[in-house]
Amino acid sequence: MANIKSAKKRILVNETKAARNKAIKSKVKTAIKKVDAAVAQKDVEAAKTALKAAIVEITKAGSKGVYHKNTVSRKIARLSKSVNSIA
C-alpha cells in the first residue's frame, strides 16, 4: 500500500477512471451486439437503426479517450460493412 499522499490519491483516481472506462466499453459492446443480432436475423431496418446508435456510442468512446481513433474507425467500418451486406 502506498504511504505518500499523492500516491494514495492516484490509486483512487485510477480506480474511478477504470470504472468509467469499463462502463463506456460495456455500452459499446452492447451496441455492437445489437447490430450483430439484427444482421443475423437479416432485419435491415433494425440493423440500420442499431448501427446509428452504435456509431454514436463508439464515437463518444473515442472522443473521451477510451478508444484510439483508428480503433473507432475500424469498429464503425466493420459494423457498416456487415449491415450493408444484408441490405
Rank of each mutant, 00 (worst) to 15 (best):
S6D: 02
R78I: 02
S73F: 02
R78W: 06
S63D: 12
K8F: 14
I55E: 13
M1G: 15
K64V: 00
N70W: 09
V39E: 04
S73N: 04
T16H: 15
A40M: 12
A61E: 10
R10C: 00
D36S: 04
T30S: 03
A19W: 13
A87P: 02
T71Q: 11
G65L: 02
A77S: 03
V35L: 00
N21R: 12
Q41G: 14
T30G: 04
K42E: 06
K5L: 03
K22I: 04
V72E: 06
I86D: 07
E15T: 01
I58L: 05
T49M: 08
A46G: 15
N21E: 09
I11R: 13
L79I: 03
V13T: 00
I55Q: 15
V39K: 07
I24D: 05
A7D: 03
N70C: 11
A2P: 14
G65T: 02
S26L: 11
K29S: 12
K29M: 07
A19P: 01
K17T: 05
A87W: 02
E15I: 02
T49V: 09
S85T: 07
K34L: 06
R74C: 01
L12T: 12
R78S: 11
E57S: 07
I11D: 14
N14A: 14
V13G: 03
G65P: 09
T71R: 03
L79D: 01
V44N: 10
S82Y: 06
N84L: 05
D36V: 02
S26I: 10
K27M: 13
A50H: 02
D43Y: 10
A18S: 12
V72Y: 10
R78D: 08
K42H: 09
I24R: 05
K69L: 02
Y67D: 03
Q41Y: 13
N84E: 04
I11F: 15
K42A: 08
R20D: 14
A53V: 11
S80Q: 08
A50L: 04
N3Y: 15
S82Q: 07
K34V: 01
L12I: 13
R74D: 06
A18T: 11
M1T: 13
V28W: 15
K29L: 08
A2C: 00
L51S: 00
A50M: 00
N14I: 08
K17L: 15
I58M: 00
V66K: 04
K75H: 11
K64N: 05
L12P: 11
A18Q: 13
K5M: 06
A77V: 02
A54H: 09
A2E: 06
I58H: 01
A31C: 05
K34A: 07
K9P: 08
K29T: 03
S80W: 11
H68E: 14
K60Q: 13
S26Y: 14
A31D: 03
A46T: 11
V28C: 06
D43C: 14
M1K: 14
K22P: 10
K22D: 12
K69F: 05
S82T: 01
A50C: 06
Y67S: 00
A61W: 10
D43E: 12
K52C: 02
M1Q: 13
K60V: 06
A38Y: 10
A47K: 00
V28Q: 09
A87N: 11
K48P: 06
G65I: 02
S82C: 01
A46V: 11
I32H: 12
L79N: 00
S26M: 09
